[in-house]
């Protein structure tokens, strides 16, 4: 009896949470396909007009592509730098972890606007004059996703007891590089993939830094959405839904690839 009651409480809470999370999404989705929706609970009529208009606008596709490659480059750069760095710190220099933990929380401590102003002032003159370019954005994005990448990779390494696996592989005749490639990487890969996807999603939805740093020069999907939201709510909803679906498909593909990679490494 008690078990059944606890089950219902749990299910009710889950249902409430799902409603809370899904209603805005469903509302946005319906608004993107609604022709008339003003005084009724559900739309009076449906249309594909907004979606078609969105896809006809070359700026949308440009913005989507720009967001994609800027996020991809930033995440790839972060992965290339952070994976070996976190590995070395966790396995060989654990004393540095305290320092690293301090550094990675800095993006939380500094508000986006303050960070943007600071970056513009630093990089608008002098030897590194990159304000308004993709370089400053990639640099800023790198910092934004630092906590996700650091924690994700570190937790994966600790979960698989990387130092012991590495010792074991070395004792069996593997060099450090080979031990990393054949034993550590396949085992931390699922965790690394999740960090990568999380970072990618965070960057894809990033607006404040992007708009302040390169808003007039480079149009990402968020900047484009911000500009079009004033023209038509229906169009903005269609853009938001498309962008959501894009992230969903991308995440699914990357997760599948990750699983496949891990499965093959296991054979």
């Amino acid at each position: 009896m008690m078990k059944s009651k606890a089950g219902w409480t749990h299910r009710s809470l889950m249902l409430l949470l799902m409603i809370y999370l899904l209603i805005p999404l469903i509302g946005t989705f319906m608004y993107g396909f609604a022709k008339q929706w003003q005084t009724t609970v559900l739309p009076e009529s449906w249309t594909l007009e907004w979606v078609l208009e969105m896809f006809k606008d070359l700026r949308f596709l440009d913005a989507l592509w720009t967001s994609f490659y800027l996020c991809a480059v930033s995440v790839a750069l972060s992965l290339a730098v952070m994976l070996p760095a976190v590995f070395v710190i966790t396995v060989y220099l654990p004393k540095w972890e305290t320092f690293m933990k301090g550094v990675v929380v800095l993006p939380y401590a500094v508000p986006g606007v303050v960070a943007a102003v600071g970056l513009i002032r630093t990089y608008s003159s002098g030897p590194i004059d990159i304000t308004g370019t993709a370089y400053i954005l990639v640099g800023a994005y790198f910092v934004v996703i630092l906590p996700y990448m650091y924690q994700g990779i570190r937790n994966s390494l600790l979960t698989v007891s990387a130092p012991e696996l590495l010792n074991s592989a070395e004792m069996l005749g593997a060099s450090r590089m080979r031990a990393f490639a054949t034993v550590i990487l396949p085992n931390i890969w699922p965790g690394v993939m999740i960090s990568t996807l999380l970072s990618f999603s965070v960057l894809f939805g990033e607006f404040v830094l992007t708009n302040m740093l390169v808003g007039g020069h480079i149009q990402t999907i968020q900047v484009y959405l911000y500009q079009r939201v004033n023209e038509s709510g229906h169009l903005a909803s269609a853009i938001a839904v498309t962008y959501f679906l894009f992230i969903l498909v991308l995440s699914t593909v990357l997760m599948k690839l990750g699983k496949k990679f891990n499965g093959e490494a296991g054979r």
Partner: peptide, 17 residues
Amino acid sequence: RNREVGMVFQSYALFPN
């Protein structure tokens, strides 16, 4: 790797993959 010494660890350290 060049010592010709084998070791069994307390936690076994088997490769999960």
